[in-house]
Amino acid sequence: MNNAIADQIKEMLVENLRIPENILTYDSELFGDEIGLDSIDSIEIVAGIDTLFGIDMTGADREHFQSIRALTEYVESKQG
């Protein structure tokens, strides 16, 4: 996993979705009980990834949204 990409995504999540930085790891379950993202947040992630990397995640499978690691790997695969 490309840590530079992961850190950019992390910063975006902290900034745009007010997730406290201290509880957010690369493998935190974003849609799990603790952080609790929902459908509105996923719209924000799509917008954030588009702004950061110019990659459109509209319609991407749920699994790619599960964690910072999953998002990073998706971005890497599209940057190919």
Partner: peptide, 17 residues
């Protein structure tokens, strides 16, 4: 602080929004 939320059982998943 997080203690203010904990006191009422308000979780991060709720108050971060």
């Amino acid at each position: 602080t997080s203690e203010d939320y904990d006191k009422h059982g308000i979780r991060v998943a709720f108050y971060r929004k």
